[in-house]
């Protein structure tokens, strides 16, 4: 792992994108690492495009501004690919994680991704509907981000999902989200 990993999340209000960034920060706290998780605050409306950010580092994080050159771009809602430039500020080796039904090769072409940039897809919305009956793709997206970055083990991430969702939801919803996270980790396609 590089010294600092910077992640930019793109989602729409109501999809749990901010929660995903928070759960990831919590999970990455192990091993003495420094973490940040913060959304971009604006008028908070369901369906409106939003960004959230993570920084994970082995040393103290002093930077307090949005992530400008992300190592990972996680797109929770594929319709955003048509409305905003999700590749803004991307680096030569940025990893794109996209929630889509489409083939990763098509997404790579659409993004015009460079040879060292990885493009990874997962059908997170379908996984969420299968596992707990709602189109909330954040937990499978977390699984996928965890897989492609190797920041934490799946077991560790599941523990944190259990803790974070356990405060708010019934056992059935928690179990569904745990299953969804696991499937997000496993059902990764790369092209």
């Amino acid at each position: 792992m590089a010294e600092t990993v910077e992640i930019r999340w793109h989602g729409r209000g109501g999809q749990g994108t901010v929660t995903a960034a928070k759960v990831l920060a919590d999970a990455c706290l192990s091993g003495g690492r420094h973490v940040q998780a913060f959304p971009e605050y604006g008028p908070e409306r369901a369906g409106a495009p939003l960004r959230a950010y993570n920084r994970i580092a082995s040393t103290e994080l002093r930077m307090h501004c949005p992530v400008l050159e992300p190592d990972v771009v996680a797109v929770v809602d594929a319709t955003l690919l048509d409305s905003i430039n999700i590749a803004e500020g991307s680096k030569e080796n940025t990893i794109f994680v996209i929630n889509t039904t489409k083939d990763p090769k098509d997404i790579r072409a659409k993004l015009n991704a460079g040879p060292k940039q990885r493009v990874v897809t997962v059908d997170a919305t379908k996984i969420a509907i299968d596992c707990f009956g709602r189109a909330l793709p954040n937990s499978p997206m977390l699984g996928t981000v965890c897989k492609v970055t190797g920041l934490v083990t799946l077991e560790h991430l599941l523990d944190d999902v259990r803790k974070s969702f356990g405060k708010k939801f019934s056992q059935k919803i928690i179990d569904g989200n745990l299953e969804a996270t696991k499937r997000g980790y496993e059902e990764v396609k790369e092209g």
Partner: peptide, 12 residues
């Protein structure tokens, strides 16, 4: 403390 940048952001 700075509004949002610190007050609403998660840090270790």
């Amino acid at each position: 403390l700075d509004g949002f940048i610190i007050s609403h952001s998660i840090e270790r």
